[in-house]
């Protein structure tokens, strides 16, 4: 597997690196929140190991194990249900899931098209905006004071609208497809 990684494209390496980095960030966060320290095996070490496994075999069950660990660990480590760190955990969960999904469907040496990067970034932004809404709703339903109050809610709505607008514009405006007029087919590739 590691030998195959030598042939991996820059895009694939970036996706896999993002999985590992997210796992490490979660390990640090879990260590700090639980008070066990950054170097604790059950928070930092295991997170790193599962992150590396998920990065090496994103098409297998390793990402499921990593995400299960992240959610389970957060459940056990976090005592403050109202904490804003949940948003960071949600971001890490989203990053791990999306990067693993993309890395799994693309061939290892294939260059990830720039339009795919753009689309997934916009989508992820949209999803995160919706998560902020969920978080705000949860805080309000629990009768707690929302830090930033209306500002956070407003920012989430604006973010969602911007993401939706950007996605719609991008989806409608993307062009550059060469057509064979006589066959009516679209050609992509280096050609001859």
């Amino acid at each position: 597997m590691i030998r195959e990684l030598r042939n991996a494209s820059w895009g694939q390496l970036s996706l896999r690196a993002a999985i590992v980095v997210s796992a490490v960030i979660f390990g640090v966060l879990a260590g700090l929140v639980s008070g066990r320290g950054v170097l604790d095996f059950w928070t930092g070490g295991l997170s790193l190991l599962l992150g590396v496994a998920a990065a090496l075999v994103p098409q297998g069950p390793a990402p499921l194990a990593l995400l299960s660990y992240v959610l389970g660990c957060w459940w056990l480590a976090n005592d403050d249900v109202a904490t804003a760190w949940s948003l960071l955990v949600a971001t890490l969960v989203l990053t791990i899931h999306v990067c693993a999904a993309l890395a799994a469907v693309l061939p290892l040496p294939a260059v990830v098209p720039s339009t795919v990067w753009r689309r997934y970034l916009i989508r992820a932004a949209g999803v995160m905006a919706a998560v902020i809404l969920v978080w705000t709703a949860v805080r309000l339903a629990a009768g707690m004071t929302v830090p930033g109050g209306v500002v956070a809610l407003f920012a989430a709505v604006v973010l969602i609208l911007l993401a939706a607008l950007a996605y719609a514009r991008w989806a409608a405006g993307v062009s550059g497809v060469y057509r064979f007029p006589e066959k009516g087919t679209a050609q992509r590739g280096p050609g001859l």
Binding site: P107, L108, A110, V111, R119, S175, V177, R188, G189
Partner: peptide
């Protein structure tokens, strides 16, 4: 390309059109 693998974004293709990927 060097390792013979390609990935293309299909969302930009017109619906109903055949897409050709050449290596």
């Amino acid at each position: 390309p060097r390792h013979g693998a390609r990935a293309v974004d299909l969302s930009t293709a017109d619906p109903g059109e055949a897409v050709e990927v050449s290596t």
